[in-house]
Design a protein around this nucleic acid. Sequence first.
DNA 1: CGAATCTTTGAAAGACGTCAACATTGGTGG
DNA 2: CCACCAATGTTGACGTCTTTCAAAGATTCG
Lengths: 228, 228
Amino acid sequence: MNKLHKDVSCSQCGVRSHSLFAEFNDKEVDVLSEHKSCSYYKKKQAVFLEGSNPRGVFCINKGKVKVFTMGDEGKEQIIHLAKEGEIIGYRSMFSGQPYQVSAETLEECNICFISKENFTSMIDSNSILRNGILSELSKELNERSKTITQMSQKSVRDRLAYSLILLKDIYQDEDINLSREDLANLIGTATETLIRLIKQFKEEGFIEIKGRKIKIVSLSALKTIAGK
Amino acid sequence: MNKLHKDVSCSQCGVRSHSLFAEFNDKEVDVLSEHKSCSYYKKKQAVFLEGSNPRGVFCINKGKVKVFTMGDEGKEQIIHLAKEGEIIGYRSMFSGQPYQVSAETLEECNICFISKENFTSMIDSNSILRNGILSELSKELNERSKTITQMSQKSVRDRLAYSLILLKDIYQDEDINLSREDLANLIGTATETLIRLIKQFKEEGFIEIKGRKIKIVSLSALKTIAGK
DNA sequence: CGAATCTTTGAAAGACGTCAACATTGGTGG
DNA sequence: CCACCAATGTTGACGTCTTTCAAAGATTCG
């Protein structure tokens, strides 16, 4: 990716078709495009911070972002991994609260910004977008219910299997490329415990390790461990 | 409460002012009232079931309801406790999925039902309700993020303290009256572990026990344990 | 009053976190 | 381009929190 970032027009944006803006007509896309601004983010750069006030939403054009909260003892809990096409940062916007989570890039990213005013006016005038957002929020709520249940009822080993399946979806054909610490913070365990379990999975032949990168060899085995 | 339940008019409903319908004008309240139907639910009665298809939303007029998922091994995880004035069951409705959670009364309840058609048409025509729902969904999402973090980072003891604080809010001046199993399923632990910790809290003087009922004596001590 | 359900206690095993030491890696400046 | 340092990853040992199983009390409700 070029460090000298060029604005991408929304009409040219390859990931728009997978986003909440997929159903926009040409006119709406143009309006959107006029009102957004794009930025290049380097790896590990903050997108927004827990406690600050939302000024708009972020649309990921390229790259992956982790969304996390900071626990009382300063340990991160990763709540969500966002990839190309996803919009982040709108939840707290609707509730009028400061951000309850932080977002940080996991790799180099292009991320567009749409101001609160523009976004809310789009919602008011566009029932498809509105319904898309309601649907999205509802699905996320369901996902988080599931995560809560997992956290409280499943062993770390089971959760690792489950998370690897999730990550497969996010990284597609690429190898999974997260720091051990991030992976541990996603699963909700200590880094050392995670490392031991990764080793187990490798020895059992479910995954391959190349440095920090993880390649899933037997998705089906992982699914068996992860449960439903 | 009388088993022979009488329909309450929404205009007469004492808890409407704490609900999403608080901002409705007289006309809107009348429309709402016409389209809803009320039912009496006995204790431990199902309101809706995980896996079934949403046909509308439920507005709690009286009583408390637990919302929970069933983990792989058949253990409940309570996601939320709903009380008077709350509307439940609309999340899956928006996402077009079957219910991902079940809801069951914790005590005798009066619960009104509003059909999907009526509810969505209200949303479409009423931007205040719409924004209220967006705000509500967002807040819940934030709460669940916090719960995930708690589940993964806090000890059962800390979580018990936290949950008791929450329950104080729900039961107000009444004593907390949940089965040990429900309390364990809220906190995400085994019933036996919960019982041992309750005993500890009693011995430490934070709470009093009267049969299954729990009375909070020192909220501040619990807050210290629960953390931020 | 008795059956069923809920609650409590004990004992033992296991999962997981923490601490400490060591190994490896990747990025940076020389 | 290399060498070095800081950050990241790995391993071992140990303690403890939590679960599980089993069984005995206590309540509740018909």
